[in-house]
Design a binder for these strands. Structure first.
Lengths: 208, 208
DNA sequence: CCTGCCATCGGCCGATCGGTTGATGGGGGG
DNA sequence: CCCCCCATCAACCGATCGGCCGATGGCAGG
């Protein structure tokens, strides 16, 4: 069986070194290259054609999720294994929706990492336990925290102290509509005023 | 000049490997050990007596800031160089107050890291530019985010959607007083309503 | 001693918010 | 085809909020 070829994508040189060292020492893997942001990642994935891309999500200059989307869109024959720091990221689910094959945390033991890469190379999904349970809760309770696009726009303005009238002006809708959206937001977040809605939104990572 | 001895503290094996590899390859450094959380860090710092401790802040089981505090309290002869992922951490300032000699981000270039460790070993401070500017703004504007205890209590209840009347009841004060506190909160946070106050409080990490 | 900050309280008023009910139209899924 | 969700709008009303005036007492620092 030939070596599994890898592309490492992370904005931290330290992490790239660590990964490269681990996979070089392990045997059975070959690191083809490294990228420090999403744009480089897409370009190198296209050029080097690795079996697996190890991808961090939070990076300056080219978001990880966008990179995954782009790799999927171009039909590149590589699997993307997301390797991130926190399991509280807002974009765990978006990353998987965008086409990531697996998702695990950087504090995973070495052997788990190797296993995950081998699994990803074969197209099998490996998810860290925390992510897995999040996924199931997501399908079990789809309306939790599920605000519509418009409702999120309203909420963002509310969080900046904007009054209903001005929200209406900014979004080119009537004040009545703003109030309707707000009522829906309160119902979905299970709160009864704007302040609590903002707090809950932060808790659920619906706001930056 | 003898090698600078190091203790690496990070909960991620990947990062520990990366750092160990970098410093071993660079020459002039010797990695004495690794710790995965704050408690181990303190114990190993006492046992191994490294010149410099490379310390991550966010770790499960033993906070980084606590570890720094403990190392300072015990008068251990090592310098602590904080090496963290984001410059938006709440505890950048606490870490420095706790006794960290330097503070830089993991995405710093290798040579900056080496320079920082050499500087730390001599007791000189190296701060990443973002942190440095934060420090100066901290001393220039000390009343920003400086809510009184009572005001914080009020704000916490506001964030849970509590109305003024009920806040009054919960805190055993009159509604008028609640409104006074709120007016002061608005002034201090530079906002004009409770929703924006909650949002700003989250931004500045005044609320969990 | 005076100044500043914190915490407490009262009253007044206009503006705003939140709740409700009801209606329209478009789009996607069964 | 029907139903549900989204997005839009209207009118009404009571409750609440925020702004502004004022006041008192305590406590720390210069």
């Amino acid at each position: 069986m030939p070596d599994i070829t890898l592309l490492i994508v992370d904005d931290h040189p330290v992490v790239r070194d660590g990964l490269r060292g681990m996979f070089s020492a392990a045997g059975g893997f070959e690191v083809l290259g490294e990228a420090a942001d999403g744009r480089q990642a897409v370009a190198l994935a296209e050029e080097l054609r690795p079996d697996v891309v190890l991808m961090d999500l939070r990076m300056p200059g080219g978001d990880g999720v966008e990179a995954i989307t782009e790799i999927s869109r171009r039909g590149l024959p590589c699997r993307v294994l997301v390797l991130t720091t926190y399991d509280t990221d807002t974009d765990t689910i978006p990353a998987i929706e965008a086409g990531a094959t697996g998702y695990l945390l950087k504090d995973a033991p070495r052997d788990d990492l190797f296993d995950a890469v081998r699994a990803a190379a074969q197209g099998r999904s490996v998810l860290s336990p925390a992510i897995a349970s999040r996924l199931v809760s997501r399908v079990r309770e789809p309306r939790s925290g599920n605000l519509s696009t418009r409702e999120l726009e309203v909420l963002r303005l509310v969080a900046r102290g904007t009054g209903n009238r001005e929200i209406a002006r900014e979004l080119f809708i009537s004040e009545a509509t703003v109030k309707t959206h707000l009522t829906h937001i309160y119902a979905k977040l299970d709160v009864s005023d704007r302040a609590a809605a903002v707090a809950t939104a932060y808790d659920r990572h619906l706001l930056p």
